[in-house]
C-alpha cells in the first residue's frame, strides 16, 4: 500500500531525511524508533503533506498513486491519517463542525452525498466510545483546553471517524499516563483490520506492549538503518542506540 523510495526532505534548507526506504503492506503494524533528531516526526509530516518541508528527491507510492503530488486534504481523502504529536488547538471551531466538514469532504471525494444529521450524530456517539471520549469534549472547540491525554484520545477519535487505510501515530504515547496509554492503545487496536496498516513512531518500547508491531525500524540520520521483528524494540529499550551507531562504524 505504501512504498517509500530514497526519500530526501529539507526544512529551511537543512536536510533531515536522507534517502529513506520503507514498504508497508495491508494488515501490518510498523514501529519506527530512533534517537532525537533522527527525522521521525519529519517523516510523518512529509507523508501528511506539511508544506513546511520540501521533498528534494525520492518517491512515495500510496495505493498506486504518487502521494507527494497530492494536497494534504487529498492524502487524507485517499486514506492517510496522521495522529499529531502536538494536536493544534483551534478555538471557535467546534469538534462537531470540524468532524462534519471532514466526513463530508471524504464522502464528496468518494462521490457520496453529505451525511444526514442523524447518521452523523450516531457515528459520533459510536466512535467516541472507541476512545472513551467524553461527550462534553466532543461539544467543545477543537482541542481547546484539552489535557495532553484528551488531545491524544481526540486524535484517535478522529482516526475512528475517518477510517483511514494507513495511520501514522506520531509519538502518540508522549504525555500519556498509564491509563490514557491503555485507552488510546485499545482504541488503535480496535480499529485494526487486515485491510489497514499502522506506522507507530515512538521513543519508548512501552507503547509497543500495547500496540504489537510486526516490524521495528531504527531511523537514524534520516535513514532507516536497521529493521527487524518486535524483539528489536526490547533490545533498544535495554541497550539504547549506541550499539547501532557502533554497527554503523561511528
Amino acid at each position: 500500500m505504501l512504498e517509500i523510495k530514497n526519500l530526501h526532505a529539507n526544512i529551511n534548507g537543512k536536510e533531515i531525511l536522507r534517502g529513506l526506504n520503507l514498504t508497508v503492506r495491508p494488515g501490518e503494524v510498523h514501529a519506527i524508533m530512533g534517537p532525537n533528531g533522527a527525522g521521525k516526526s519529519t517523516l510523518s509530516s512529509v507523508l501528511a503533506g506539511n508544506p513546511v518541508f520540501d521533498v528534494t528527491e525520492g518517491s512515495v507510492n500510496f495505493y498506486g498513486k504518487d502521494l507527494l503530488a497530492l494536497s494534504p486534504e487529498d492524502r487524507s481523502r485517499e486514506g492517510l491519517f496522521l495522529s499529531f504529536q502536538y494536536p493544534v488547538e483551534i478555538p471557535g471551531v467546534s469538534m462537531v463542525n470540524f468532524m462534519r466538514a471532514a466526513i463530508n469532504e471524504h464522502r464528496k471525494y468518494k462521490g457520496l452525498d453529505p451525511i444526514s444529521a442523524t447518521d452523523f450524530l450516531k457515528l459520533m456517539r459510536e466512535k467516541r466510545d472507541v476512545v472513551e471520549l467524553d461527550n462534553k469534549l466532543a461539544n467543545r472547540s477543537v482541542n481547546e483546553g484539552f489535557s495532553g491525554g484528551e488531545k491524544k484520545r481526540n486524535e484517535i477519535f478522529q482516526m475512528a471517524m475517518l477510517e483511514p487505510r494507513l495511520s501514522i501515530l506520531d509519538e502518540t504515547d508522549s504525555g500519556l499516563d498509564i491509563d490514557a496509554l491503555r485507552i488510546v492503545s485499545n482504541g488503535v487496536n480496535k480499529l485494526k483490520s487486515a485491510d489497514n496498516a499502522t506506522i507507530v513512531i515512538t521513543h519508548y518500547q512501552r507503547l509497543l506492549d500495547y500496540i504489537k508491531p510486526d516490524f521495528v525500524h531504527v531511523l537514524y540520520k534520516g535513514q532507516i538503518v536497521k529493521s527487524a521483528g518486535p524483539e528489536l524494540a526490547l533490545e533498544l529499550e535495554e541497550k539504547g542506540y549506541d550499539w547501532i551507531k557502533k554497527e554503523l562504524g561511528e
Partner: peptide
Amino acid sequence: ALFYLRSRGIS
C-alpha cells in the same frame, strides 16, 4: 491550524 484541518481532508 490550517494544516491540521487540511490533514483531515478539509479543503
